[in-house]
């Protein structure tokens, strides 16, 4: 029974990793950029919830909606200001990466300046009584985390595979030059991808605040790193892969804590990553793409 509880604990945190990993994966899929500022978008989302819910004392739905919109816009804006010029001029990959790190540091410092570096506490958000199945208890936050992440992934998968913008995204990802020739506005498509990725990070932020009622400017660092690991584990560029990676990471952490040693959590988790990459360098669900000559 305890084993099942621990697996569910792992899925709860894994859902948040998964939502954040989706953003990494989508952006990487389309422009091959590891957007290290993505973790800090979660922080931006969390502080937006804090501002609307606590400082302005407005209703919860407004805070959630506001946070998602704000992050979506912020994502588009960051792409426009920091990355587009580099992308259009086909700057070396390393320049993009360094810019991403710069944006990350900028966001952390900006929020530290605005709100101070000490943690802020969040109120209760979505609460209902825990469900009991035999000896296994499901807390409200775990149920919400798992179900929201599944719904989000399904929606995203539907959008990418069925909708026109999804087709444009796939085309841009496959071959941006050819897509442009076919009349696809690749700039808009890339901006849209950043926006959607950031909006998903905001959803992750809302779940985060609901589960761990404390936020600080540096919170995106470790969370972003773990989500990045989840994305790589699942196969970066793949949507189901990001989800799978997130859940696996969460469960691996939880089970290591529970049955091996809480002193070794990170060692075991990153050990798994190394083994997976040795055996399958593209990640669990990654596609084997050969460089075209």
């Amino acid at each position: 029974m305890e084993f099942l509880s621990q697996v569910i604990n792992g899925l709860g945190i894994g859902s948040i990793y998964a939502l954040v990993a989706l953003g990494y994966s989508m952006v990487y899929g389309i422009v091959q950029l590891i957007n290290f500022a993505h973790g800090d978008i979660i922080m931006v989302g969390a502080y937006t919830v804090f501002v609307i819910l606590v400082m302005m004392n407005l209703p919860l739905w407004l805070a959630v909606l506001g946070s998602i919109l704000f992050c979506g816009v912020a994502g588009v804006l960051i792409e426009r200001v920091a990355y587009r010029r580099l992308l259009v001029h086909a700057a070396p990959r390393i320049s993009l990466l360094i810019t991403a790190i710069g944006v990350s540091i900028f966001l952390q410092n900006l929020y530290q300046l605005l709100f101070g570096s000490d943690p802020k506490s969040m109120p209760k958000m979505f609460v209902f009584a825990p469900l009991q199945f035999g000896g296994v208890q499901l807390t409200s936050s775990t149920i919400i985390n798992i179900s929201v992440s599944v719904v989000m992934m399904a929606g995203l998968q539907l959008m990418v595979n069925k909708m026109k913008i999804g087709k444009a995204m796939r085309a841009t990802s496959e071959d941006a030059g050819a897509a442009k020739l076919m009349g696809i506005n690749t700039n808009t498509t890339i901006a849209f991808t950043f926006g959607i990725g950031s909006a998903l990070a905001a959803v992750g932020a809302v779940l985060y605040c609901n589960t761990y009622p404390q936020i600080k400017p540096a919170m995106g660092g470790l969370l972003g790193l773990k989500a990045f690991v989840a994305a790589v584990l699942g196969g970066i560029g793949s949507i189901p892969g990001a989800m799978l990676g997130g859940y696996l990471l969460g469960v691996a952490e939880s089970l290591t804590n529970a049955y091996i040693s809480s002193n070794l959590t990170d060692a075991v988790v990153f050990g798994i990553l190394i083994i997976v990459l040795l055996v399958k360098p593209t990640g669990l669900l990654g596609k084997n793409t050969r460089e075209k000559v």
């Binding site: 305890e2 509880s5 621990q6 604990n9 792992g10 709860g12 945190i13 807390t139 589960t211 761990y212 404390q214 919170m219 470790l222 952490e253 939880s254 804590n257 529970a258 040693s261 809480s262 002193n263 959590t265 990170d266």
Partner: peptide, 20 residues
């Protein structure tokens, strides 16, 4: 006697063990 690593925010695993 449960440990966690500095910067952790999820303690449910350790607490579930303690609860048991």
């Amino acid at each position: 006697k449960e440990a966690y690593q500095s910067g952790a925010m999820d303690f449910k695993t350790q607490l579930t063990k303690i609860k048991a």
